[in-house]
Design a protein around this nucleic acid. Structure first.
Length: 253
DNA sequence: GCGACAG
DNA sequence: ATCTTGTCGC
């Protein structure tokens, strides 16, 4: 598929939009990428779950990543990165806005074996190419998507108790799951992005959830917002140096 | 054809 | 996403 500048299948480096498709060719680019997705089961659940999210404000984006230790049950590393917004939000093309911000950050993780979690959909997407699929495929890492609302698909009634879930069906296929992460709270939409199975994705979301959103994502959400608001220091991509971010609210023990 | 539509 | 503190309910 044609790109602004061909760079193989590796995550684009540096300033955008180099390596990313233009909005007009994004659908074709994404559909091509879908053909390269793997749904192989995760042989071993990694010890670390990386939650990543982005907060925006008039031209500026702050991406944040949090490494959650499944064994200990708390965050062990976090970082935020500031950079310019590269694309407007468009349902279905969310990855064009979010992925460029996430990649530079994910390349600096302190752990080798991890599963990624993004605030958005994976396969539960009109073309089966949600943010989690795009990031997972580019990184060749297991990724799942966890969103607050469905973008497509149908579901049956879901029990009110935490831990229950029902499949999300789209065009005759199971593309995700609606998961109750907290009693009586609005369910979350979980779907596979790359290199893991839906039951494993659901298991990971439930294993890291205390409130409605899984902790790795909820904390990344808060960190990104705090840095955006200026309450905490973040690093600028333009500065070429990524700095450590000070502990934030609800920090680690 | 029209509207809805992750964040 | 974002404008916005406390408040009510489970």
């Amino acid at each position: 598929m044609k790109r602004v500048s061909g760079q193989g299948d590796r995550p684009p480096q540096g300033q955008e939009p180099a390596g990313w498709p233009l909005p007009a060719e994004a659908e074709a680019w994404a559909r091509h990428l879908v053909g390269r997705l793997k749904q192989a089961p995760l042989a071993v659940l990694p010890r670390w779950v990386v939650g990543a999210d982005v907060a925006y404000d008039s031209g500026v984006a702050v991406a944040a990543a949090v490494v959650w230790d499944l064994k200990e049950g708390f965050p062990v590393w976090w970082r935020a990165l500031r950079r310019p917004i590269s694309a407007p939000y468009q349902p279905g093309l969310f990855f064009l806005r979010e992925a460029p911000c996430l990649l530079p950050l994910l390349q600096r993780l302190p752990v080798r074996r991890w599963v990624g979690m993004v605030h958005g959909h994976g396969t539960a997407h009109p073309w089966g190419a949600g943010l989690a699929c795009v990031v997972g495929a580019l990184f060749k890492k297991p990724f799942l998507g966890c969103a607050g609302a469905l973008l497509c698909g149908q579901v049956s009634p879901l029990a009110e108790r935490r831990g229950n879930w029902v499949p999300v069906t789209h065009e005759g296929k199971v593309v995700g799951a609606l998961v109750r992460t907290r009693d009586r709270a609005k369910p979350v939409a979980v779907s596979v992005g790359h290199r893991l199975k839906l039951p494993q994705a659901v298991q990971l979301v439930l294993a890291t959830s205390r409130y409605r959103l899984p902790e790795p994502l909820r904390l990344a959400d808060q960190l990104a917002s705090a840095v955006l608001a200026g309450a905490l220091p973040g690093a600028s991509l333009a500065a070429a140096t990524v700095e450590a971010v000070a502990p934030f609210q609800g920090g680690c023990p």
